[in-house]
């Protein structure tokens, strides 16, 4: 038996479901497969929760070999991973997080530009991660998307673009500031995920969960440093590829279940789910200016085939029977 030392790290703690699943699914499955022959064993040196790097350096840390294996948070790598931003800049194209991951897995194999944007950073992608679904959390119930006109909503980063055209003002912040921001009137509510809202107890200050089931987005990947990868025996590589696929599938399934569980838990704790009438999501998405084009145009100018990728992404969704809320590619 040969022992291989590998460092595995993340910017976020293991209580974040997909980070915890690196341990419980990716690492565990790799160990399991390797144990079948007993030729190799991996001695994992775990440095989860920002011990080695923070959220602003998830890509470079894997790239530079500061960690061997790590979760790369593509949301925060807009410039270096431009095509990975497609799903959040073509909002509400699918409300099925598992399918979202499946499609990105396929694109990674079929779209060279997408694969290159990851692999040029000296790494090999093993598993993919995504978000659950977005809803609008408010102090008073909404009767539709028109009702947010004039409101201040916590919606940092790209979520702010989702509020363009709605008349609502996007308030900057982070998950950790939402609670106080709403409590103290900095904002009137937040556009956020059930998985994010539950741990920060957002429902205590914004008890109305206006359920839009607004599409989840691709958020990143579990990746391994290329130099480390090239030095691994083939058997270990094969085991990791399989474990990575298992991780992606399990994570997709977990997102769907956990989203519902989180909503139920919040209701149990006093939140109220307000189901939006049919067509509100389409109405919302059509209020927006062409945000997909705003995203794609500057990339095209730099020679990055963003429009082609966008089409391929939406077509892949349609091929699986999804109906994007807006045809961003047309």
């Amino acid at each position: 038996e040969e022992v291989i030392d590998l460092t595995v790290a993340s910017s976020h703690p293991t209580v974040v479901p997909w980070v915890g699943m690196i341990q419980t699914h990716f690492m565990a499955r790799t160990d399991e497969i390797l144990a079948e022959t007993g030729n190799y064993r991996i001695a994992w040196n775990e440095a989860f929760g920002g011990q080695l790097y923070k959220a602003n350096a998830t890509l470079t840390s894997v790239e530079d070999g500061i960690t061997d294996v790590g979760w790369v948070f593509s949301f925060l790598e807009q410039a270096k991973l431009p095509l990975s931003q497609a799903s959040s800049n073509a909002p509400f194209s699918t409300s099925n997080p598992a399918l979202q991951l499946e499609v990105h897995q396929q694109l990674l194999e079929s779209n060279e530009a997408f694969r290159n944007e990851w692999e040029q950073h000296n790494l090999k992608v093993l598993g993919l991660t995504g978000t659950d679904l977005y809803d609008i959390y408010t102090k008073a119930p909404l009767d539709g998307i028109d009702a947010i006109d004039g409101m201040k909503l916590s919606a940092p980063g790209v979520l702010g673009t989702w509020l363009r055209g709605t008349g609502a003002n996007a308030v900057d912040g982070a998950l950790t500031t939402f609670y106080t921001d709403v409590q103290t009137g900095v904002s009137d509510g937040a556009v956020t995920l059930a998985l994010g809202a539950l741990p920060i107890k957002l429902y205590e200050v914004a008890p109305y969960i206006n359920r839009f089931d607004a599409g989840g987005a691709f958020s990143g990947a579990v990746a391994i440093n290329r130099d480390t990868w090239d030095g691994l025996p083939e058997e270990v590589q094969t085991a990791m590829v399989e474990a990575g696929k298992y991780y992606t599938q399990a994570h997709g399934k977990d997102l769907v279940e956990r989203h519902e569980a989180a909503l139920n838990k919040m209701v149990e704790l006093g939140a109220k789910v307000v189901d939006m009438p049919d067509g509100e999501l389409v109405k919302w998405v059509n209020k927006m200016p062409d945000v997909a084009s705003d995203w794609a145009t500057p990339l095209e100018e730099r020679g990055i085939p963003a429009r082609a990728f966008l089409s391929e992404y939406l077509d892949a969704l349609r091929a699986r029977g999804e109906t994007p809320a807006r045809d961003w590619d047309k």
């Binding site: 470079t60 807009q78 410039a79 270096k80 980063g157 790209v158 702010g160 673009t161 363009r164 945000v291 705003d294 995203w295 500057p298 730099r302």
Partner: peptide
């Protein structure tokens, strides 16, 4: 160099 090549930026495109 890497920031220049990737045209790294802060902020939100379109805003």
């Amino acid at each position: 160099e890497k920031d220049m090549v990737a045209a790294e930026f802060i902020g939100v495109p379109g805003i």
